[in-house]
Amino acid sequence: MAPAANAQSEVNALVVGAGGLGCAASLALARAGVRRLTLADPDSVDATNLHRQLWHRGSDVGRLKVESAADRLERAFPGLAVARVPSAVSAGNAESLFRRHTLVLDATDGDAVKFLLSDAAVLTGVPLVYGGALRLGGQVMRVAPGGPCLRCLFEGPPPPGARATCAEAGVLGPVVGAVGALQAVVALSPRRSDGIERWYRLEGAALAMRVVDVHRAEDCQACGPGRKSAPILVDAIGAACAR
C-alpha cells in the first residue's frame, strides 16, 4: 500500500538531530508522505553510532550525519526534498529555524538543548515533539500552543554531571528506533480539542507502554497564562559524557 502522500504534503518538518531518534523519525515522516524535511546536526558519523543510527553505514564514518542521512532518505524516497543544516540548534538560530517549519522534532540527546527547543516552541507556536531514549526505555510528548511544555513537567535540566555515568550511555538500538518513530506518529496525529497532551513512556524491558495525560501547569514560567513574558532563549552548557 502506498504512503498517504496527500495528507502530509503540506508539512515542512525540522528534525533536530540526525542520530538514533532522528534517523527513525525522518524515515517515519517520509513513509507517512511528508515531502519536505530539514535535518540539523553538527556531528559526524562515529562507529559507535552504527548500531542505532540506521541511515549511517560503515562507509560513512567521518562524514557529516546530515549528509549521509539526507542522501539515503532521498534515495529511498525520490519525491522527498531534504535540507541539510550541519550545525547545532542554539539560542541564536532556534527562533528563525522554528519559524521556517510547520513542525519540529526534538531528536537530540542533551538535557539542556531539550529545554531550549521547548522554549522555542512556546515562543514561536510551532509544534514540537520531544523525545528521549536511554537504556531500554524512552519517552515522547508534544509541545503545542495552549498545551503543556517541558517546563510544566521539569523545572529545568539537571546540573552537568548530576546523572551521567558511563553506563547511562547504553541504549538498545530498536528502543531508540521505536521512540523516534513514535515521535513522528505523535507529530502527525490530530491534537485533542482540550489542549491536553499525552506523555508516552516506552518500557522496552517489559515491551509495554504507559500513557499519561498532561495538562499545562498554570504557574509554568515558560508557557503558563500568568507568566511575565515569552521565554527568552538561552544556551545552557553541559554534557558530561560523549554519547
Partner: peptide
C-alpha cells in the same frame, strides 16, 4: 506503510 509501520517494525 506510513509512520506507524516504522514504529511497529522497531
Amino acid at each position: 506503510a506510513g509512520a506507524s509501520a516504522v514504529l511497529l517494525g522497531a
